[in-house]
Amino acid sequence: MYLPKYSFAVVLSLFLGTQTYAEVPRTDWGTPSLQGTWDFRTMTPFERPEQFKDKEFLTDEEISKIETDRAKAWEARGNVDFEEAAKSEGQQGDVDVGYNQFFLDLGTKVNGTKRTSLVIDPPDGRVPAPSEAAIARYVEARDMWARPPEGPEDRNAFDRCIKGFNAGPPMTSGAYNNIMQIVESEDFVVMQAEMVNDHRVIPTSATEQLPDHMRFWKGDSRGVWEGDTFVVTTTNFNEHQMFRLTGPNMTLTERFTRLDEGTLEYKFTVVDPDTYDVPWTAVMQMVKTDADVYEFACHEGNYAMPLMLKGARKQERDGTSKEDDTWLPSWSKPRT
């Protein structure tokens, strides 16, 4: 049975000059234990901002300043009159993306990697330019999301409660619910993100890829231990797969490495020749937490979907479908 225990790995490697590992909990069968609840909030941007153009890492002083500035901005946001602020920007007030401090759970810390972005390859920290075909595919979907919905299928998978916007795969830090949990046996590792509570049961011994015609919303994940890193390959996404403009033929490789008692490194590489000419990679550190993953009964409480559909039908009746798009959240409106 499973008995987590502590051990020091590869002490001799100190003398041999190879990579050494910190003390990490291990399973009874010898692999590092990934089990627990992991927090992947971070304020580190996904792509490197212009201000850090040629800078890969932050100094401790820079990190301290960035975090202090964020804390001040967060405090200031708590005092904002959203109704007035939104109106002054031509928005609808707090009915449009009206998330106050209670709902948002953004990261307040620079990620433990101390990098200026989560993307580490290409070296400029930016996701490569997507193909024209991928952009066209996205524009088509975006235009559909921007019109009054004829039925639920016109909305995206997140509005339909089929997928979580940050649950992946791959998992990425978002506005809230940036937490996931892992339970493991010798033969399987199960990962569950809080966002929409989706889970992946991942075999630990390399198994065959599913036939090409079998396609899932979250793809088909297969794992293997490479030394102390659990490597998960996911393929067989369905046609709705659109992570960073990728399509159903994306091959996602995630690498989970327990760095120490409280830290799990999460690195993923995106390969999708339909969308990107070259693979690209992002890395972040997740932090162990005692917090629980709660049930996220998204569909059971999806008031937004029937309201959007009712609104669209009312607009048709009133003949206002084209002139009034106030039902549409500003973040869903087409951007140039």
Partner: peptide, 22 residues
């Protein structure tokens, strides 16, 4: 449904609805 059993937690992953419980 798939039972993943450890010493202190048991995760049950159900196919219907991709539901689960700890």
């Amino acid at each position: 449904f798939h039972i993943i059993q450890s010493d202190n937690k048991i995760f049950v992953a159900y196919e219907f609805g991709s539901n689960s419980r700890m």
